[in-house]
Design a binder for these strands. Structure first.
Length: 136
DNA sequence: GCCAACGTTGGC
DNA sequence: GCCAACGTTGGC
C-alpha cells in the first residue's frame, strides 16, 4: 500500500468540487522546500486528504496521485515540482480542524504541528483516525 | 556564515 | 483584520 498525504487548498481558489469537476489537476505553485520534498516522495496511487484552508477549515475529500513529481511549469527558477491529482471521493462528513486538534490520536499530525505546511505526510494510523471521524 | 528584516501563510 | 509561525533574503 502507498503512502498517505494531506494537501491544503483555499476553496475560493480551487475547491475539492473543482477537482471533481475537472477530473484531475496539476498540483503546482508549491514554493516551500519541505512541501516540495513531500511532493517528490509521492507515488502514483498514493491517497491524499484534501483540506480546505481559510474557509471551511476541514478535510473534505480524498484524492489520489496520478502523476509523480515533474518540474513546476509555473516556477521560473525551476527549483520546485508539481504532481497531478485526481478525485477519489468526497467524505461523508467533513473533518474539521478543531476536531482533529481535539483528537489525541492526531496530536503529532504534521499539518497540526506545522500549520503553514501546504503538503504534509499522514501516518497510516492518522489516516484511519481521520477517515473514522468522517463517517461519524 | 550569521542574523535581522521582511514576506507569506493560515488560524482566529 | 490581526498576529504568530516560519521560511527566505540580503547586508555585513
Amino acid at each position: 500500500m502507498g503512502n498517505h498525504w494531506l494537501v491544503k487548498s483555499e476553496p475560493a481558489k480551487y475547491a475539492f468540487a473543482d477537482l471533481q469537476r475537472d477530473g484531475k489537476t496539476v498540483w503546482d505553485g508549491v514554493r516551500n522546500n519541505a512541501a516540495a520534498l513531500h511532493l517528490k516522495a509521492m507515488k502514483v496511487g498514493d491517497e491524499v486528504l484534501y483540506y480546505h484552508s481559510q474557509e471551511g477549515l476541514a478535510v473534505v475529500g480524498i484524492a489520489k496521485v496520478v502523476k509523480e513529481a515533474f518540474p513546476d511549469a509555473t516556477d521560473p527558477t525551476g527549483r520546485f515540482v508539481a504532481v497531478e491529482l485526481a478525485p477519489v471521493r468526497e467524505l461523508k462528513s467533513p473533518v474539521a480542524l478543531k476536531d482533529m486538534k481535539a483528537n489525541p490520536a492526531l496530536a503529532s499530525l504534521e499539518m497540526i504541528r506545522q500549520g503553514r505546511l501546504s503538503v504534509s505526510p499522514v501516518r497510516p494510523e492518522e489516516w484511519a483516525a481521520i477517515l473514522k471521524m468522517s463517517e461519524a
